[in-house]
């Protein structure tokens, strides 16, 4: 009797082999820094330049040290407050501006949109000087607001939300208009729930971006009480040496919230990115 599913005869296409090899290499390249971060966080200082993934003498001493250092909690709290407020703000402002640019016809609409989009082409490094001068003039240096203000609204988020709102049929909005809702209520109760995937994706992007932000928080604050996690972790580098094991431990701990956010919302991220692709 012949087995219809004779796997021994099945040939694997060379293209498939190449594809899987490339994907595997890409995956390894992505994962290795994380593996080394975790590995280093469990090593003693004398072992950190040893490239072994499994330490010879694993220790949790680094975690004990970092967690017993009260500064870590302060940095964590600062990052959490700044990332959360910036995320809420960006999600609200980006979506209201994106909605307005998408659903209302007014003179200069395209100019505004292009102006917002064009800011995407300016690298952060170029913006930090005007931001700094502005923060200095307004007395925002060494404050939460000083760290947060460049991120309360994002050009990328506005673009993303505008594209998503394109997929919301105007009939929904007009039906609500006839039912007596004002424009703000229509945006909040009708349009926003229809773009939940985009809102989730944007929230995650903004949260992660702010959680890992380094240059601007480093420049705008010199008060250790206001350091965010990435800035705070650099204090483990001193003139004579860099305490990589502590930096990696802090980084590993800092990854936990982003990992949680990502795992919980990843289906929204994937959906959001796919939909953006279609609309874009």
């Amino acid at each position: 009797m012949t087995n219809a599913f004779d796997y021994s005869r099945k040939r694997i296409a060379p293209a498939k082999v190449i594809r899987w090899t490339l994907l595997a290499l890409g995956g390894i390249a992505m994962v290795m820094p994380i593996v080394f971060m975790l590995s280093t966080s469990f090593k003693w200082p004398h072992e950190i330049y040893n490239l072994k993934i499994i330490p010879d003498e694993p220790t949790i001493e680094n975690y004990t040290y970092v967690l017993e250092d009260g500064r870590f909690y302060q940095w964590f709290w600062n990052s959490l407050v700044i990332s959360t407020i910036t995320t809420i703000s960006a999600v609200l402002f980006d979506s209201i501006v994106g909605y307005t640019l998408c659903k209302f016809r007014f003179r200069g609409r395209m100019i505004v949109f292009v102006a917002i989009l064009s800011t995407l082409m300016i690298p952060t490094e170029m913006l930090v000087i005007p931001w700094y001068l502005m923060a200095k003039d307004f007395g925002w240096l060494n404050s939460y607001w000083g760290i947060m203000f460049p991120g309360i609204m994002t050009a990328f988020g506005t673009f993303l939300m505008k594209q998503f709102f394109e997929s919301v049929p105007n009939d929904f909005l007009e039906a609500a208009r006839i039912d007596g809702l004002n424009e703000f209520q229509i945006w909040w109760s009708v349009a926003m729930p229809l773009v939940t995937p985009a809102l989730s994706a944007l929230a995650i992007f903004v949260f992660l971006g702010n959680w890992t932000a380094f240059i601007w928080p480093l420049i705008v604050t010199n008060d250790p009480e206001l350091y965010t996690l990435p800035v705070g972790l650099t204090t483990f580098s001193v003139e004579q040496s860099v305490e990589w094991e502590l930096i990696m431990t802090g980084a590993a701990l800092a990854t936990i919230p982003t990992l949680i956010v990502f795992l919980v919302f990843q289906r929204y991220i994937i959906r959001g990115v796919v939909m953006t692709g279609i609309k874009g």
Binding site: P169, D171, F172, E174, A175, R177, I178, D179, G180, L181, V190, P193, L194, T196
Partner: peptide, 20 residues
């Protein structure tokens, strides 16, 4: 008058009922 002040109701071609 705004739509809501006209005391009319409209049924749309694609229903326009809210999926959420």
């Amino acid at each position: 008058l705004a739509p809501k002040e006209r005391n009319i109701a409209m049924v749309f071609q694609n229903y326009a009922i809210y999926p959420h």
